[in-house]
Design a protein around this nucleic acid. Sequence first.
DNA 1: GTGGTCTAGACCACC
DNA 2: GTGGTCTAGACCACA
Lengths: 129, 129, 129, 129
Amino acid sequence: MDFKRQKAIYIQIADYLLENILAGVLTKGDKVQSVREMAATVQVNPNTVVRSFNYLQDREIIVNQRGIGYFVADDALEKTQALKREIFVQQDLPEVFKMMKLLNMSFEDVQNIYQRQANGASATKKSPD
Amino acid sequence: MDFKRQKAIYIQIADYLLENILAGVLTKGDKVQSVREMAATVQVNPNTVVRSFNYLQDREIIVNQRGIGYFVADDALEKTQALKREIFVQQDLPEVFKMMKLLNMSFEDVQNIYQRQANGASATKKSPD
Amino acid sequence: MDFKRQKAIYIQIADYLLENILAGVLTKGDKVQSVREMAATVQVNPNTVVRSFNYLQDREIIVNQRGIGYFVADDALEKTQALKREIFVQQDLPEVFKMMKLLNMSFEDVQNIYQRQANGASATKKSPD
Amino acid sequence: MDFKRQKAIYIQIADYLLENILAGVLTKGDKVQSVREMAATVQVNPNTVVRSFNYLQDREIIVNQRGIGYFVADDALEKTQALKREIFVQQDLPEVFKMMKLLNMSFEDVQNIYQRQANGASATKKSPD
DNA sequence: GTGGTCTAGACCACC
DNA sequence: GTGGTCTAGACCACA
């Protein structure tokens, strides 16, 4: 797992788990990796993982069973969808629409970019003209 | 001007100017508000405004005429478009596509949200050519 | 039996037994549930129950008859009352008085809350002699 | 400031601030001690103070002005009262009522204890009979 | 084994 | 100056 410099690592770890929940990889009741395991997996200090887990526990996405570990909460999927969708629709999309307007781009343009990026996920470009 | 907690204030001020350039409100040769004026306008420490201006000057969007003030550079519009478009296409849009997939949203859904948000704000246009 | 997150589970189990002693449900000489039974009843690891019993045995509330099980000690009621009363008067009540003051609540307010909570649960009594 | 062993220090620091808010010592808009100041004052590691402040910020009791410090939120008093009152009425008081019943104590008894503790806050006892 | 907390010290971005 | 983050290492309570 490689981290971006701009975002806090503990947030990126939390987001990684949230994405796994959204994608159905983690479902309710599943045990989450232990703090030490996760720390070893992603190569960070255990304290940083603790912080991620606290972050998710505060939001009731995961729950702690004392002495045993963390587990995905029953309504984690719903909570996560609500959380992410809220941010996406209320914050991210308005920004996008604004940029589209400022850059004079249409939905068609955006869809074309999507097509281009979908093909050759690793390749950077594909000349359409 | 109300600032978002997540982004540095000096970046938000710079973005505000960049958007004005993209929108044609500020065009080449225009004088930019003085540091003190701007600081008073947006209610921040003048040092923060200085930082914004340095940021834009580094990218040659604005230029300093010593003792007079900052002015919008001749090719500011082109530079700004290139800068913003790069970030938008290479960083922002991929994130958006990813979120759409995770949230099971189609382009159609996004367009509907756009329509809904357009009512209530200023009307917008999109022309692909 | 549902456990609170804030208190150690083994303490909560011990408290449960102590309350039964105070309420007269368990009296001197009574046999206490076996570790395995208790563990099955309250859905915890047997080790946790062992810990509860050790806790009570240390305080001479219950005694172990090897190979047979645990039994309520002869002076369990007195010991329990002394123990609980000490904690209640010296630690719990001062906290309560402090909170009442900070929240601007009078004894009358508290009694009203008591009345309200009494309806809906089991009826209680209070006799000062 | 002397800390109790049972509760996490960062919680005790947070509670200390909450009590000051309830008591009117800290009111909306007041600047909170900086992390480093507070750490020096209460003799703990700055990280521990950071944790306290995060805890309070999550609950919107204090707000951060970037690069300047933390300030008491506008509705801090209301939030704090709601928070503390909820816990007191829903969790603490029921426990108290339960203990009173188990220990056969009346409200009159409790009020007597209050009187005794009120006189001679430092002295431990005052023989009433 | 599990997580929870605390310390010490460092580096960074921001105002 | 401010807070935010991360690391390293330690100790503890709990199951």
